Simulated assay, not measured.
Amino acid sequence: MIALSKYTVDVRRLDEFSALDLYAMLKMRVDVFVVEQTCPYPELDGNDPDCLHLRLIDGEDLLACARLWRPTTDHLPRIGRVAVSPNHRGKGLGDALMREAIIECEKAYPGEAIEISAQAHLQKFYASFGFERTSEEYLEDGIPHVDMIRPLR
């Protein structure tokens, strides 16, 4: 774990989580993506075991999380499931989470660009981290999205 100001950055594989830490992360993702966004979709999609999971934590309190996909023959390394706890928004955690996710992707998969499937209304946010739009807008689980790539720097 690396200290980030008063927060701690934790990156691990799914099988390295305690049951309580795993529960907290999955609950936050469901609370944000399914309940808050009123979007019933398969949050538990079978991909978590193949990904790294990044969390911003403060003691036992989960502040934010993201899922980091390894590259495949069809995809570059990807950042997904980017979520900040509703109780901790407005504190710059979204920016911190994206900075750390990019750093961890670059460490784990050097020499690779990074892709995301971004909710369309967040394009400006992701562009501030160097992501460029690479697709037309499309619906994913009823929410407008665009594909974006952060080229190698």
Rank of each mutant, 00 (worst) to 15 (best):
I79E: 05
R78C: 07
E112A: 13
T38D: 09
P71W: 14
S85P: 03
H75T: 05
S117W: 03
L26H: 09
Y7H: 13
P110A: 04
L139S: 14
F129I: 06
A113L: 11
N47T: 13
I149A: 03
V9E: 09
V32M: 08
P40V: 13
Y41F: 15
R13A: 12
E132P: 03
R12V: 09
L63W: 00
K27P: 02
V146S: 09
F17M: 13
S117Y: 02
R150S: 05
E132L: 15
I116F: 06
H88Q: 12
E106G: 10
D31G: 00
P71R: 00
A3G: 00
A66K: 06
C39N: 06
V9H: 00
T72F: 10
G46V: 00
E112H: 15
A83M: 03
D48P: 15
T134I: 08
A118K: 10
G111I: 10
A64L: 03
L139I: 14
L97G: 05
Y109C: 12
L52Q: 08
L54V: 07
V11G: 05
C105Q: 15
A66W: 02
S85N: 14
Q119I: 08
L26C: 11
S18P: 11
P49N: 07
V34I: 11
K124C: 03
Y7Q: 12
N47F: 15
A64I: 05
K124E: 09
D147R: 15
R78K: 13
G80I: 08
P110T: 14
H53R: 05
N87I: 01
M1K: 10
V34D: 06
D48V: 02
L139N: 15
F17E: 15
E106W: 11
L26W: 04
V82P: 04
P71E: 00
V34M: 04
A3T: 12
G90Q: 07
M1F: 11
A120M: 00
R99Q: 12
F131L: 08
A127W: 01
D10L: 05
L76A: 08
R70F: 11
R55N: 11
R153Q: 10
G59K: 08
C65L: 06
T8Q: 14
D50I: 00
T73Q: 13
T38Y: 04
N47S: 08
E132K: 15
D10K: 10
Y126R: 07
Y41Q: 12
E140F: 05
P144S: 11
D15H: 08
Q123E: 12
E140H: 14
G142C: 01
M25Q: 04
T38H: 14
L68P: 06
E43Y: 09
S117F: 02
R133K: 12
R70D: 02
R81T: 04
L68I: 05
V146R: 04
T73F: 12
L4G: 04
G46T: 08
W69K: 08
E137K: 13
F125R: 13
H88E: 05
L68F: 12
P110H: 05
D58L: 14
R78V: 03
K107L: 14
R70N: 05
L93M: 02
L97T: 04
G94D: 00
R12H: 09
Y126W: 03
